[in-house]
């Protein structure tokens, strides 16, 4: 019944949940997501599956408090039931032996990156992961990432941990020292945009995992649409991963903010 069995704060705004979902745990692959809804008046939002245990019958969801519904989710406690949880959705990550794979993730994007890092390693790739965040306390899952990465480079904007600089500085460091065959990037849209611009310059095939607004998540509403290579594509059923070099990130950024005013009104109501 989608009961929360564990809850752990990875940083003040990022919470890791283990949720009972035996069927999804069995069916999910790296790159899949679920749709969740909290409360009878709740909104349906997509969350990428960070990990799963078939034995325990649980999936791991890592949630960052970015808006009304994610805050509501993060307020759930162990023993609470998630009103609705459905999945696994989307197409799984394309995993094969590419050679050297560069995984570039920022902030909460590290969570969905973890199963990809693991799968890429198990497919026989050399995996180099660039883990970036604004500051030290926002770096998450470092040990888990290190476990499956041949090399892990930490980047912080303020230099409080690892190297000082943006994710792109870390990527450039890797590209300059070794041949990279394939890149995967997950993080805020603006970050993925800059990663994509950089790897395009070096002609490295790059996949970005997009987290757009969705309602049903099953290919019905079309609110998740993005322009990829000049064509409208649907993230929920054709994605969430696309050729980053073809994605119109500027359009995606605008569409992500479509309901920002509403969101702020809603938050004011709650906290004032």
């Amino acid at each position: 019944m989608n009961k929360i069995v564990s809850k752990e704060y990875l940083s003040p705004n990022v919470v890791k949940f283990e949720v009972e979902a035996p069927l999804i745990a069995k069916a999910r692959k790296a790159g899949h997501f679920v749709m969740v809804r909290v409360g009878e008046k709740g909104e349906r939002i997509p969350l990428t599956i960070a990990d799963a245990s078939i034995e325990k019958g649980t999936i791991t969801l890592i949630v960052q408090k970015v808006g009304f519904s994610t805050i509501k989710f993060c307020n759930l406690e162990v023993g609470d039931i998630i009103t609705d949880l459905v999945g696994p959705l989307g197409k799984p990550t394309h995993i094969e032996k590419f050679g050297t794979v560069l995984c570039a993730c920022g902030g909460v994007g590290t969570a969905p990156m973890l199963p990809i890092v693991e799968a890429m390693k198990k497919a026989g790739n050399r995996v180099v992961t660039v883990l970036a965040a604004r500051t030290k306390e926002l770096i998450m899952l470092e040990n888990e990432i290190r476990k499956f990465s041949d090399d892990t480079i930490i980047m912080t904007d303020d230099g409080s941990y690892g190297n000082k600089g943006l994710v792109t500085a870390g990527i450039e460091m890797v590209i300059k020292r070794e041949k990279v065959d394939h890149c995967v990037t997950i993080g805020p849209a603006i970050m993925m945009k800059f990663v994509s611009e950089l790897t395009k310059k070096y002609d490295i095939p790059t996949i970005a995992s997009l987290n757009t607004i969705m309602i049903d998540g099953t290919g019905m509403c079309g609110s998740c649409r993005v322009t990829v290579g000049g064509k409208t594509r649907f993230v929920c059923v054709e994605g969430p991963e696309f050729d980053a070099h073809q994605v119109d990130f500027d359009e995606m950024l605008i569409r992500l903010n479509a309901y920002k005013d509403f969101e702020q009104e809603k938050l004011k109501k709650i906290f004032l």
Partner: peptide, 30 residues
């Protein structure tokens, strides 16, 4: 793909399934 252009499925799903016209609902609708 401008903001404010959407499918009828999206619009109706927001209002009918998610009850977005109700101020108590979490789902927004333009």
């Amino acid at each position: 793909n401008l903001v404010g252009v959407m499918s009828a499925n999206e619009y109706l799903t927001r209002v009918n399934l998610m009850d977005a016209a109700n101020p108590d609902a979490d789902t927004p609708v333009l």
